[in-house]
Design a protein around this nucleic acid. Sequence first.
DNA 1: AAAAGTACCAACCGCTTTTGC
DNA 2: AGCAAAAGCGGTTGGTACTTT
Length: 207
Amino acid sequence: MRKPCCEKEGKNKGAWSKQEDQKLIDYIRKHGEGCWRSIPEAAGLLRCGKSCRLRWVNYLRPDLKRGNFGEDEEDLIIKLHALLGNRWSLIAGRLPGRTDNEVKNHWNTHLKRRLAQMGIDPDNHRLGRRTRLTRPSKLLFVSNNHTYNKEVNSQAEEFPVVLLNSATDPEIISNTNISMISSVPDLNLDLTIGLPFMESMNQVCTS
DNA sequence: AAAAGTACCAACCGCTTTTGC
DNA sequence: AGCAAAAGCGGTTGGTACTTT
């Protein structure tokens, strides 16, 4: 049986009070983010270190943006999720002032549903069978170094970008009427993972 | 006006990874 | 190299606010 992360008897749980927040802020301003396990006692808090860290990282940090997500932020989350999956900390790292928890919550409550309504499977970012060929849409392919925009059906209806992340996706490309492939600004993602299907994408785009 | 349903998000839990000895 | 402790991460839960019936 795994030991609890810390001794929890006598510790507070649940929502943080204003006083607790202030104690943590004051302590970290004075001493910085040292050892989380020792912070509660040093700061005079009846919380475990883990809870303190979470409260600071997700809510109290001064560099947090808060508020609604902008369209550009949502686009970026969708793009990054297609590439990285549920790697929330990596995704949040690309969104200044946003936390992994915030990004995860926003994905689960807004973006996931939005994609599903568009007929896109939010888990793999692929169009569902029924919608694939019947709705005009704009597809965006992203690799480490390149992005490719593609309109399907040539009708200019504005759809948010769709990302494909599987080696089997070029099948979609060959089955649809590509009217235009154009380069869009590089995202400078600096990602280390490789996407094998991009080789065939390059062939499609240059032929 | 009240009850039921839904949406949102802060916080927790437990597993994995990293760090220090 | 191996172990334990600490930190980090992602999934899930629970409370609250809002909306619908």
